[in-house]
Design a protein around this nucleic acid. Structure first.
Lengths: 207, 207
DNA sequence: CCTACCGATCGGTAGG
DNA sequence: CCTACCGATCGGTAGG
């Protein structure tokens, strides 16, 4: 239905992501997707051998681009405080510019047919564990530099995960004012940083 | 399949919640549910006129019991600090003892067929707005009593929502150690309270 | 609470 | 990339 982006393959990925994200995996039929792409259902099977393969491809793509967006925000920044602030901004920006990717990840983490669960969970677990290592490393770094007091880098990393998860999920539950998280991001960040460091942040968010 | 709880209606509600929560709405068929209950599919229609009505009933029940568990934790407690701590404990306890209810709420907030979306969103919105009023009131209270500095009760309520959402959602994404949030709850609570109040909490969590 | 049945749609394939 | 088709299953109803 939408012609942005040229090839049929591109359209397939985009429309499938959109439909899966809003209606779920079982709630989206291959015919639905074909209709949005503008071809017949049978043609989709030239690109992916099954509906399950299509979801896995989308999940891989979503996790990779999410990870890229977040990691990219960390390079070349000195203080941990500024690294975290950059990370926060990137995460929020990504979730707004790529809502379908976030939807796919949420869907995969949540409600998926039993036959797919193993494949999906192992994909997520792989990304999750590398993400977790990065986080713990960052907080160990912060403790060494005396940016953050205490010594429990695991608890700090967990608080950060909880904070980011909440930021990403809150707009979905809060039916009214979806923008609350964005417009109050500086306050949220101030609360977070004061909680872990005991001091007010020097960082001004640009979002 | 499971005979705990007597009547067929009870079993229907329980098994439907379990299946919906793990496989999603479209991913669960009325036959699946009937099989778990131990009756034929047609019999289910004596209790609910449609699959959609069944989900709505489950959602209503889930939201109500969640709200009851949380509000109950607030009564008769003096300081806001202790009220929030009790709330946190109740929320975590509920999510562990009623995983199906949480699954239904997540499912409803997420991926649901287009025809159901309006009914579901209005149900969630009603509970959400009453929840939000309670929260803002509590933080206004805390500001008046000088338990918390500043004056932005809306931002404080949002930080709390984000924190709670993150606590509830994190175990679903974190494929490994689902218990991390529970075992580190005291640390998470300390970070949170220090973030909003600038001081360490006096509260010892009992979870 | 059951048997028996409805039209519609599902994921997927054959063959071109 | 299409038409034509497959068996299976979907939500739901009739009638008892």
């Amino acid at each position: 239905m939408d012609d942005t982006g040229s090839t049929t393959h591109d359209k397939l990925l985009r429309e499938a992501a959109r439909l899966f994200a809003s209606r779920g995996y079982s709630g989206t039929s291959m015919s639905d997707i074909a209709h949005e792409v503008g071809v017949r259902k049978a043609s989709l099977y030239n690109y992916y051998g099954s509906k399950a393969d299509l979801l896995i491809a989308l999940l891989e793509q979503s996790l990779t681009s999410w990870q890229a967006a977040c990691e990219q925000s960390l390079v070349g920044i000195e203080s941990v405080e500024r690294r975290l602030a950059a990370y926060l901004e990137s995460a929020v920006a990504f979730s707004r510019t790529h809502p379908q990717a976030m939807g796919i990840i949420r869907l995969a983490a949540g409600h998926v047919p039993s036959e797919l669960r193993r494949r999906v969970r192992s994909l997520i677990a792989r990304h999750e564990s590398s993400w977790h290592r990065t986080l713990v490393g960052m907080f160990e770094d912060a403790i060494e530099r005396d940016e953050i007091p205490g010594n429990d880098s695991a608890a700090l990393a967990l608080f950060w995960s909880v904070f980011i998860d909440g930021i990403l999920v809150n707009p979905i539950f809060a039916t009214a004012k979806t923008e609350a998280v964005v417009t109050n991001l500086q306050s949220l960040w101030t609360f977070f940083w004061r909680g872990v460091s005991g001091t007010s942040p020097h960082t001004e968010l640009t979002i």
